[in-house]
Design a protein around this nucleic acid. Sequence first.
DNA 1: GCCAACGTTGGC
DNA 2: GCCAACGTTGGC
Length: 154
Amino acid sequence: MKYWLMKSEPSVFGIDDLAAAPKRTSAWDGVRNYQVRNMLRDDFAIGDLAFFYHSSCEVPGIAGIVEITSRGYPDVTAFDLKHANYDPASKPENPRWYVVDVRLQKKFPRVITLEELRAHEQGKLRDLLILRRGNRLSITPVDAAHWKFIAGMV
DNA sequence: GCCAACGTTGGC
DNA sequence: GCCAACGTTGGC
């Protein structure tokens, strides 16, 4: 079982959108970065857990925990001409982009802010990828020790 | 394969 | 809105 951190802009899709979705489950679509695509396609397993991170918003930080409920499968929004995620280079017979399904496991009573995380940048959260300068991946692996520590910050 | 131009991410 | 730090594109 692996741990992850998945970023989303709440103005596009936030934790409350997931809470309101049928079965509190949704495909994590719209990833258009090859490194992240490879993780979704090859590295995610059913039962993995991920922090749901809100980015590009007033208070960036971790809003809750989701459970991975599928392996990677093709991102059908890339095939949809009218969808914002449309990519003509991705074909159903040779899909370029992938998703996994996520189910909301827990919305935190409060957001664990980026500022709080940064307070441990030189200590317990050293080498947490989200804190690394220049990191732009929307999905990053989280090691077990970091996961445990952050979950304890709630 | 190089690299300039361009686009995107995301904190501030 | 600004801008650093990327990733991608395309001419050569």
